[in-house]
Design a protein around this nucleic acid. Structure first.
Lengths: 237, 237
DNA sequence: TCGTGTTCCATACCAACGGTACGTACCCAG
DNA sequence: CTGGGTACGTACCGTTGGTATGGAACACGA
């Protein structure tokens, strides 16, 4: 690959010179190095525009190493994806750890999420390329194990805290509400990230979502029950 | 491509046999044929997995024709994308054309959108591959000219119909609200499409979003003003 | 310490892909 | 009938993801 001028007609001899800077250091640091380099390049250029040659070049190894640790480009991406998602999850959880009131927790979670979604690596790898590369199903599995799981808990706290039914919330309905909120936050967050004035845009998103939450709260206070998915047409009005 | 056994060593003579079934029929039907075939294949296999050879093969032309009408694979995708988006827009608009009340209009629009997002072509081409292939910026431009524009108008109608301020809604806030709703619908819709029981899932989504709308409506009736993006921290609670 | 299996990785190669260069058949204005 | 533009077909190229092969370094029991 782009190295036509090198040792050519000595194919069988050891060829020597495996590495200058002493490879094989600690237990498979190569793998982590590959993931780190791949994360950087995927985040900068996107998945399709990043070639394996580029990755292994910058990681100072060859494709042999890469294909020893990963089954292919997609598997490498998946490792990167999980890493980024894990960081995001940790970051969000740190942002709402000392909030007790469900509504304040929701607000803190929203802010933390808006911060995360402005990081270029998260946007590019998780939001933009994630679904396309992993396929929607796999993308969703991964997502539901990390950031989505947090949102589920927040939404659950909000729904149970409201004086709707005491305790028990229909699990399916909870999932649906979370999907709705997660999508809203994700979309709004992405638009925040690509805004001219991200801070202002984030403020607007907070205001809008906060307004919606206030609406839900007023319903809770008024004793309006959560919708029953089994019922017929009784959504708006 | 994959035709090693053919006329080889007669490179300069016309080679003849341009086509069996008489090409060059009407005025550039080739272009539309290419778009149609590409839409089908992109929808089935996704953008990266569909090769140009496959497209031109099924369209009964060669890459020469393709590169005459389009500057490359991405340009072809964009043509397909616009076509699919235009159909979606028309479908949604047809679904809410005879609704006058803003809240009913919103509900009808939601249903129409949930229908659209269940079509495989729309999901794959617009939702899944769209952002990744076009890049977020271009994707957004296209989107805002079609389906997003409809949602803007619906949201505007809802916001102005509520007795918030009479008339005038802050344009930026409107945009933000729309992004939030659009994201919610898109995410929920996609999850509907990949659900085991799409009909039931759609019902749940309708219920959830309807509940949220009801909350907003109660705020409107109570005379709670729309949030002011300029104000500080006053979102939830 | 000597095999011997396993891990880890480099080298060389391949088929398929998107894209390009160039030629040619056709149409129409002059 | 001729020149130029349109609408393709054909052949070819560089790069890409992926594979086959083999060797070097370690682990470890005999």
């Amino acid at each position: 690959m782009s190295k036509p001028a090198a040792a050519r007609l000595i194919p069988k001899v050891p060829t020597k010179v495996p590495r200058v800077g002493a490879r094989r250091t600690t237990r498979s640091s190569t793998k982590r190095e590959l993931v780190a380099v791949a994360e950087e390049l995927f985040a900068e250029q996107g998945y399709p525009a990043t070639s394996l040659d580029q990755i292994v070049g910058q990681a100072q190894v060859t494709k042999g190493a890469l294909y020893h640790h990963f089954s292919g480009k997609q598997a490498l991406f998946e490792a990167v994806f999980e890493r980024v998602e894990a960081e995001a999850r940790a970051s969000i959880q740190a942002g709402l750890k000392d909030q007790r009131d469900p509504w304040l927790k929701a607000q803190a979670g929203l802010r933390a999420f808006l911060d995360v979604v402005q990081q270029p690596a998260y946007r590019r790898i998780v939001v933009l390329d994630g679904p396309s590369v992993l396929g929607y199903e796999r993308f969703r599995e991964q997502e539901e194990r990390s950031t989505f799981a947090i949102v589920v808990e927040i939404v659950r706290a909000v729904l149970t805290a409201g004086e709707w039914d005491d305790g028990e919330v229909d699990e399916e309905m909870l999932q649906t509400f979370t999907r709705v909120f997660f999508g809203a936050m994700s979309s709004a967050g992405t638009s925040v990230a690509s805004s001219d004035d991200p801070a202002l845009a984030a403020q607007r998103v907070e205001a809008a979502l906060g307004f919606i939450l206030t609406g839900l709260r007023s319903l809770a206070d008024a004793g309006v029950p959560l919708p029953d998915p089994a019922a017929g047409r009784d959504s708006a009005r």
